[in-house]
Design a protein around this nucleic acid. Sequence first.
DNA 1: TGAATAGTGTCTGTAAGACAGTATGCA
DNA 2: TGCATACTGTCTTACAGACACTATTCA
Lengths: 265, 265
Amino acid sequence: MKKAPYSLAGKRLAHLASTCLQGHSVENVTLRFINDELKLFLCRYKNSGKWGLPVSMIRMDESFGQAAIRLIKESHGIEQAFVKPFAVYSNPERGSPDWVIKMYEKLLEPDELYLLDWIKCRFISAGYLSFIQPKVTAPQKNTHQIGYLFEQIDWVSLDSLPTLVANHQEIIDRAMRQLRIELSYLPVAKELLPNEFTISELQKIYESILRKKVDRANFQRKMLKLGYLIRLDRKRMGVANRAPYLYIIDHAAYEQLMKDGIGYL
Amino acid sequence: MKKAPYSLAGKRLAHLASTCLQGHSVENVTLRFINDELKLFLCRYKNSGKWGLPVSMIRMDESFGQAAIRLIKESHGIEQAFVKPFAVYSNPERGSPDWVIKMYEKLLEPDELYLLDWIKCRFISAGYLSFIQPKVTAPQKNTHQIGYLFEQIDWVSLDSLPTLVANHQEIIDRAMRQLRIELSYLPVAKELLPNEFTISELQKIYESILRKKVDRANFQRKMLKLGYLIRLDRKRMGVANRAPYLYIIDHAAYEQLMKDGIGYL
DNA sequence: TGAATAGTGTCTGTAAGACAGTATGCA
DNA sequence: TGCATACTGTCTTACAGACACTATTCA
């Protein structure tokens, strides 16, 4: 019988091995609208100093989608979030990536190294696109993963990403392409904006996703014509310029639009 | 030590257990353009008499996508086909469906029933959309699966599907919705039509997918404007009406269109 | 020659793109 | 009052929808 692990990493790995499906994981491409810009959530892994997407194993009692939501809960402290799978990575050669193995090798005590066997196997992973609403205050700093695995977390602008581990850049590119393709059917307005928002903020989201500027007047005309925006009497004050009107979403109309598609710009 | 299986189903199951990942499968939503109509490939399972999508386990040495392609090869005798995943089904309660278990219970000899243990586990499956080119002559009648599992196979019109096993109807609906959403980025013209085709045939594919009639003149204008169709001097003769021009695809232009998207009708 | 579909042209309404002009909140 | 952005309106162009007219192949 092997001795019980006592290092943080050892305990975590032993816990994973007893509660999770071996060789299955999710990778989250997590977006959030911060300071009028669309940002991506990244983590810097301990001891390798490299940035990557948040990942999680799949528990015995949950689906891939539930794992993606739990991963968000652990990182951001919220119960619900919009998530959508966009790819499955299942090449038979695809194992636990080098940088994870090496990280654990550094974090584990020598007599705990046997625990590594559990993650040295073929891996099947699913990529999930997820949206975090702005009302969420801040990324949590005291979750399991952040304590055990990450030394830093950050929201990064999409056009200035650092060099990433493994094929995470490719995964992000694929997620963003899928987001562009499905934009007309995805609830970006509802999931990325606060309850009350301005047209200009909505426009910035579209511009971030489509990677191009759109004409303000034409964008406003198009969105208002769709009929899911309700203009409030109030305006957003204190912004050093003319105060823009606030809008909320007519959820019934919005649901219908998400079914049929909004149409591109 | 257990005795070696000798029934067809027993041998098949034993073979699967030794070559495949336990609890992983693909389900193929396979489309093909036959007699001016888009049809779906379905199989009738032995001893239950129920129709369902073709499914396959994942071999140790292949990815989900490769399994989807191999499944097509086994059913249709072709080496390559366009496949694209559209969903992952991974609920922890999701096991081998009843009808599969029951089918094997009927097909196996009593002393082979222990083989069933291998498929009584949690199942993770991926749904794949796939296109079969018309030049393929006919579904093969002598493959492994068709001999062991199916008593009938058929190409069925999308608006007159029989009652299907498990959640296969839902899987098909999801696949077709995804096909509509991504239509502008999917190579339907290249993968569903013969090398030389008429605009009217292309139009019928779009109509089948979008589930609505489109105006012939406007469709022709739109498609020709996209610039990926090359008109030949020849026409399709012998069709009891005015002979339509034949077209081929300018593949360079087509690839570019698939990247940027064609735009809807 | 007639039937049926192919191909082309035209008209109209709508939407997109460009951009000017006015309004408004704050410094 | 000036600046920066919000909002509205207009003009032009492009395209989708509707539909008429001619062309062509086979029965």
